[in-house]
């Protein structure tokens, strides 16, 4: 058993992959909390697909794909803002048009390359083999910038996430903070691309955060749990990928999804099973039930 756990660590590429997925899990888990609380999952999905042409162009030119993806993310987010200025086109429609269009552009550019099927697969579904030492430094650096920025503006981003009108009345520039968050989201996406691939990267943002939401009502605890689940899913997924030959992205995302499923069923307060148990107990002994149901306001002394 011990050797089963330690064997992958004998390979340098696996050491890099483990460190990278831990970083990606923590960064995606943290930014993802605000993605799900603000209902931006569709935007995250769109952005992760829309960066594809940037990845392909830098791949063809022999540059760093992370930088290509970042440039594409900034261009796409500005285009989404510009198109949704039109009175007839809503924000989600603009996102949908650009997401599909830019992904198609990426696929078309990729198909012009020889041997594109193998490369396309690694872009779409992730590849643990290619994480170099410089990728690790880049992931760590981008992660520190993203999490540092989130910490500096934590109060503003929190307020904007749940009470935009009050935030505006305090003089906060909502457009600026929305763009800042979009950039943070783009950073989290691009550093996850190599590990989990283009198609599944959204799961690193959404699934751990959604699991954490089932387990706690406290924002700080939610961020901690989400990061932990992101990192844990990454670790378990990489072991599965190493031993079973499953693409790393699919293995990591499936692990995160299983953890979500377990929390959905078994979470102490919101889980399906515990809710049913409490309901049955309440029906059997209504007088003994002191639990406050989630929809019931807490006691008021007036």
């Amino acid at each position: 058993m011990i050797s089963w756990l330690t064997d992958p660590w004998h390979y340098t590429f696996m050491q890099h992959a483990f460190l990278a997925i831990l970083l990606v899990g923590v960064i995606g888990g943290t930014i993802g909390v605000f993605v799900i609380l603000r209902g931006l999952a569709f935007l995250g999905d769109a952005l992760s697909h829309a960066v594809f042409p940037g990845v392909v162009i830098t791949f063809i030119l022999g540059g760093n794909v992370v930088i290509g993806a970042l440039i594409a993310a900034v261009i796409i987010s500005l285009l989404i803002g510009a198109i949704s200025q039109s009175e007839r086109i809503k924000n989600d429609t603009a996102i949908g048009v650009l997401f599909a269009g830019s992904f198609a552009l990426g696929v078309a550019l990729m198909s012009l390359q020889t041997g594109y099927v193998r490369d396309l697969n690694s872009f779409l579904f992730g590849s643990i083999l290619g994480v170099s030492r410089s990728d690790l430094w880049l992931t760590g650096g981008v992660g520190i910038i993203a999490l540092g920025t989130l910490w500096i503006f934590r109060r503003e981003i929190t307020l904007i996430s749940f009470d935009r009108v009050f935030a505006r009345s305090l003089g906060l520039n909502l457009w600026l903070f929305d763009q800042l968050f979009l950039v943070l989201l783009a950073l989290a996406i691009v550093i996850s691309l190599q590990m989990v691939g283009n198609v599944l990267v959204l799961a690193m943002l959404v699934t751990p955060a959604a699991t954490a939401r089932l387990l706690t009502d406290n924002l700080r605890r939610m961020i901690a749990i989400s990061s932990l689940i992101g990192a844990l899913s990454g670790l378990i997924g990489l072991y599965i990928s190493f031993y079973r030959g499953v693409p790393s992205g699919a293995a990591v995302v499936l692990t995160a999804t299983v953890i979500f499923g377990l929390a959905f069923m078994l979470a102490p307060r919101t889980g399906v099973i515990m809710t049913r148990v409490r309901y049955r107990m309440h029906r059997a002994h209504p007088e003994a039930d002191t639990h406050v149901m989630p929809d019931q306001p807490v006691g008021d002394r007036t």
């Binding site: 996430s161 749940f162 009470d163 935009r164 009108v165 009050f166 009345s169 406290n218 924002l219």
Partner: peptide
């Protein structure tokens, strides 16, 4: 603000 302007499910 009005109460309806706020996401009351926010943790």
């Amino acid at each position: 603000p009005q109460r309806s302007d706020v996401d009351w499910k926010f943790p």
